[in-house]
Simulated assay, not measured.
Amino acid sequence: MKTRIKRRLGLAVGALIATVLPAVADICEKRDFDGQGYVICTLTAEQEPGLRLWLNGPDGQVLGDFSSLRKTLGAGEVLGFAMNAGMYHADYRPVGLYVSDTETAGQLVTGASNDNFGMLPNGVFCTGGARPYQVIESRAFASAQPECRLATQSGPMLVIDGALHPRFLVDSDSRYVRNGVGVSADGQTAWFAISDRAVTFHEFGRLFRDGLRARDALYFDGSVSRLYAPALNRADFGRRLGPIIGYTETE
């Protein structure tokens, strides 16, 4: 019975991939860096309008997974990729700031705490403002109050002005599957990455700083990290998610 179910799921995913592949084939790729495997989804400035943040569906209930998200898309819309986009409370509310085109939830948090979110400096990923993509340290964000079409806060920062977070340890034994976002120095490119296997903060930060040459990068989460990338035959499932970020195109 289990074998039949797996076969049916595989056929269903395969049919989905065949449907959406032409529009999104070049966004996500597998890449190795320093002995670790990652999936990296790259967006240019021209693609920024297609980037979206989701939390709740039209009924006001949290979406929680990629399948529910896809059901909210309009006619002809294709989901190129999606991943979890920040930490959340037990009721799925964002821990920090969350701003989308149609919804605002959570407030900017600038204080330190003992968890990853409060491992200062933390930051905000902001799109559609003065530059297409920005990762801004949270206290600087509070001071500048930049315009953002989308904004999601998380922590810690992985890369700050070209330097790794000062608390990352080369020999750390804290390893998780991790995901996050990095931005080029000119703000014209954003890289969304997830590790294939458990990695340390130091390893993940080096992917952005040394592998992608990101000027700034922000950690989204670990252990709950999930990716939807149809061109790679991937649709992760598991724990329900809070904020989700993703890219859509219209066929």
Rank of each mutant, 00 (worst) to 15 (best):
R93L: 04
G106P: 00
A198Q: 03
R8I: 13
P49S: 11
H202S: 05
S184R: 01
G187D: 14
S138N: 12
A229I: 06
Y98D: 08
N179C: 11
V99P: 00
L164R: 08
T44P: 14
S225D: 07
F208S: 08
G64Y: 14
R226A: 15
R167I: 05
V170Y: 10
A235I: 12
A18H: 05
E46H: 10
G155Q: 07
G50D: 14
E77R: 11
R213Y: 06
V13N: 05
A45H: 13
A163W: 05
K71W: 07
H165F: 01
A198D: 12
V183W: 14
L73V: 05
P58T: 01
Y88P: 00
D65Y: 03
H165I: 02
L97K: 03
G74E: 15
S195P: 00
I194P: 01
R240I: 03
A142T: 05
I136W: 13
E147N: 03
L11C: 01
A45K: 15
V170R: 11
V78K: 12
R215I: 01
L164M: 07
A15R: 15
I27Y: 13
V109E: 12
F204L: 08
R197Y: 06
M157I: 03
I5T: 10
P243W: 06
A112Y: 00
A90N: 04
R226E: 15
T102W: 02
W54A: 02
L212V: 07
G205E: 12
